[in-house]
Write a protein that binds this DNA or RNA. Structure first.
Length: 493
DNA sequence: CCCTGATTCGC
DNA sequence: GCGAATCAGG
């Protein structure tokens, strides 16, 4: 094990040859380098105390190395200790966070028999559910196969064949239904179990402490292995073959990254297609009579661009920064044309709502990895709260306008007030906040206080917004401000 | 120093 | 349009 260096990063060389156990445990690290962080974790409650080592490691490409594999590295001897002037990658922190969460969960399961039982029971329930579903679908499959065979038989009459087809269709529907039901029930069980588990977690008052022991930038070296690492025919030119090995690594990483980016891009593409379909459907239902003239030549949208996308979609696309870079093998969209809605409609709001809900779900899933109360957990929680707030706001808007506009007299040309709700711009100041700002600014409250009163806004933001709103400029000699200062001075003396 | 609002400028 | 950084006055 390494000495306890403290937190400042050090670079060192690991001698893989000094590893005592099976060579296969560390063979993959040959010639590699990366980062390694070891921390001591202590969990303490009224009755129990558990200590453990947390290991977070990654390679040069920031690919995480599982803790159980990285452990082997710590068993090697090291030399060439030196200062390290590089900054450790952020992912190391993330990994440590995950390890912390895992450690905590382990402690919970070990120390809390109720939780362990609950966990087991949940697993068993899910297994039973799956077994039942598989048995059921298998029976259906057999029936379908049998019916198909009968249908193929020569002596079957046309009516009989039609009947078989009908029954097969029914059975297939039932099969699909069973699968869907399984998915639903499984998700429900999981949710339930997680919720119960979390309440049990929160009930225990514990203290978790993570103390970093060392943070090293490592290079793995192996002397004797060089000989059998090299291809025999290239053994004369070690440098070249080493380069080749490195190149292979780089190519592999590049491929992996490209693949991930492609998947991401596809996901975005899919969401976009869904939204398009929904918007189109909404448009169609809203305008039963087609208006051929109004949209003379709707431009086919270009690839990688979100046509009239909602800000959330754009954000989504931006978050998955893959779309613009990677060329997605486009499934040659059949020129889907959307008459871009000139004003916010309820279909759009509903879609945005759905997107937000989906984002919340993803956040929730991600948040489960983090240790309760950790920085990342809190951040996640905050983001979730914000999104839920936005969903509520959207709901209110949708409700306030009484659902989708009916095709009545009102919906004619003198078009309805476009309700200057800043739903087109998630960054824009919501109307109520602007109102508040106006009022407080009028009352002479300081920008700092206004920012605090509104919440989540800096004084600079308040001032900036006030200026943009064209609110009366307040000279710095304004009474309230000076009064406040004087009051303070008076209080001091 | 503290506070304040005003302005700039990169996003 | 937004707001952090910066400026400048009290």
């Amino acid at each position: 094990m390494f000495p306890e260096f403290g937190q400042s990063p050090l670079s060192l060389e690991l001698n893989l040859d000094s590893y005592d156990e099976s060579w296969t445990n560390i063979a993959a690290f040959r010639g590699q380098s990366g980062w390694l962080l070891v921390a001591r974790a202590t969990i303490q409650s009224e009755h129990d105390l558990l200590r453990g080592k947390l290991i977070a490691a990654c390679d040069d490409y920031e690919t995480p190395i599982p803790a159980w594999r990285a452990t082997h590295l710590t068993q090697c001897r090291w030399d060439r200790l030196d200062h390290c002037y590089e900054d450790p990658p952020e992912i190391l922190d993330d990994l440590l966070c995950e390890e912390e969460g895992a450690f905590y969960a382990r402690w919970q399961r070990e120390m809390n028999t109720g939780l362990a039982a609950l966990y087991d029971r949940g697993q068993r329930n899910i297994e039973a559910l799956e077994a039942r579903a598989i048995a059921r679908t298998r029976v259906i499959d057999l029936q379908i196969a049998d019916l198909r065979r009968r249908r193929r038989m020569a002596d079957a009459s046309d009516e009989a064949r039609a009947m078989f087809t009908e029954i097969i269709a029914e059975l297939e529907a039932e099969h699909d239904h069973a699968i869907a039901q399984l998915a639903r029930q499984r998700a429900a069980l999981r949710r339930e179990a997680d919720a119960t588990e979390e309440t049990l977690w929160q009930r225990t008052d514990v203290l978790i402490e993570v103390e970093p022991l060392c943070l090293v930038r490592w290079h793995a070296k192996s002397n004797h292995s060089a000989a059998h690492l090299l291809d025999p025919e290239q053994s004369g030119s070690g440098g070249i073959s080493l380069l080749r090995v490195q190149r292979a690594d780089l190519v592999a990483v590049a491929r992996r990254r490209a693949k991930e980016a492609l998947e991401e891009a596809r996901r975005v593409e899919k969401t976009r297609a869904e939204v398009l379909a929904k918007t189109e459907a909404a448009e169609l239902s809203k305008k039963p009579s087609p208006q051929p003239e109004s949209v003379a030549k709707p431009p086919p949208f270009s690839r990688g661009k979100l046509p009239k996308a909602s800000p959330f979609l754009r954000k989504l696309a931006a978050a998955s920064k893959a779309a613009p870079v990677i060329s997605v093998p486009q499934p040659s969209l059949p020129q889907v044309v959307v008459a871009a809605p000139s004003q916010p409609n309820h279909g759009k709001l509903a879609i945005e709502r759905d997107l937000l809900a989906a984002m919340v779900e993803r956040l929730e899933e991600r948040g489960r990895k983090f240790f309760l109360g950790s920085r990342k957990y809190l951040q996640n929680k905050e983001e979730r709260a914000e999104l839920t707030g936005r969903i509520a706001a959207l709901d209110a808007v949708i409700a306030a306008h009484g659902g989708p506009p009916e095709i009545g007299t009102i919906r004619s040309l003198p078009n309805p007030p476009p309700t200057e709700l800043p739903d087109d711009q998630p960054n824009a100041w919501p109307v109520d906040r602007v109102e508040m700002l106006r009022r407080l600014w009028g009352q002479g409250m300081s920008a700092n206080d206004i920012g605090r009163a509104i919440g989540g806004v800096s004084r600079n933001a308040v001032i900036g917004k006030a200026k943009r709103l064209g609110l009366p400029i307040r000279a710095q000699t304004e009474i309230p401000a000076r009064q406040a200062t004087e009051n303070k001075l008076a209080a001091e003396s």
